Computed example of a mutant assay.
Amino acid sequence: MEQLNTSTQQNVSAPSMPQIPRMLPLKQVVHYTGLSSTTIYDMLDRRSNRYDPTFPVQVKLSKGRVAWVESEVAQWLESKIATARVH
């Protein structure tokens, strides 16, 4: 197997690749949060008594298909955990 000689290679930095957000379907959001799909949609509905303006809003990917940004769901969960630890 041929070894690369690092002393002769140029130090060329590759263009930075954009971070592609990981998207979660409703089933995974239900799994990670422990909430039902009904509760999740109630938390998104301003008219509901369960409305939570801090809950991440879904992204419409196509007709009939939505998903949530994984990092936003994780941040929401972390904030809930932090709040629970303070009280």
Rank of each mutant, 00 (worst) to 15 (best):
L24F: 11
S48Q: 00
T83L: 14
Q9E: 02
W76L: 04
S16W: 05
T8Q: 06
D45L: 12
Q28N: 11
P25D: 11
Q28Y: 11
E72Y: 12
S36N: 12
T83Y: 12
N11G: 01
Q10D: 07
K60G: 07
S36E: 14
Q58S: 10
S71N: 10
Y32S: 09
E2A: 03
S62R: 07
P53H: 04
M17L: 15
P53V: 03
W76H: 08
A14N: 08
T8Y: 02
V86P: 00
P15N: 07
V29M: 13
R47Q: 06
T83W: 11
T8D: 02
S79W: 09
T8E: 03
T8S: 03
E78S: 08
W68H: 01
S16E: 10
N5T: 00
G64S: 02
V86R: 14
R47D: 06
P25Y: 11
P15Q: 08
S37L: 11
S36V: 14
A82C: 08
T6Y: 12
T83A: 15
W76F: 12
M17N: 09
V66Y: 03
K60S: 08
S36L: 15
M23K: 02
G34L: 05
A67V: 01
S48G: 00
T8W: 02
L61N: 00
S48Y: 00
E2D: 03
K80D: 08
T39M: 15
Y32N: 10
L61E: 04
P25L: 14
A74G: 04
T38H: 11
W68C: 00
S79N: 13
E70R: 05
K27L: 08
M1W: 01
V12R: 08
L77V: 13
S36R: 14
A67N: 02
H87K: 12
V66D: 02
V12A: 05
M43P: 08
V12C: 02
D45P: 10
K80N: 10
K63L: 05
K60P: 06
T39N: 13
K27V: 11
V66N: 09
T38Q: 11
L4Q: 01
M17E: 13
E70C: 05
S7K: 00
S13V: 04
L44Y: 09
E78Y: 06
R65V: 12
K60C: 07
T33C: 15
V12I: 14
S13Q: 07
L24E: 07
K80R: 15
M17Y: 09
R22I: 13
D52E: 07
T39V: 15
T83H: 13
M43H: 10
M1N: 01
W76R: 03
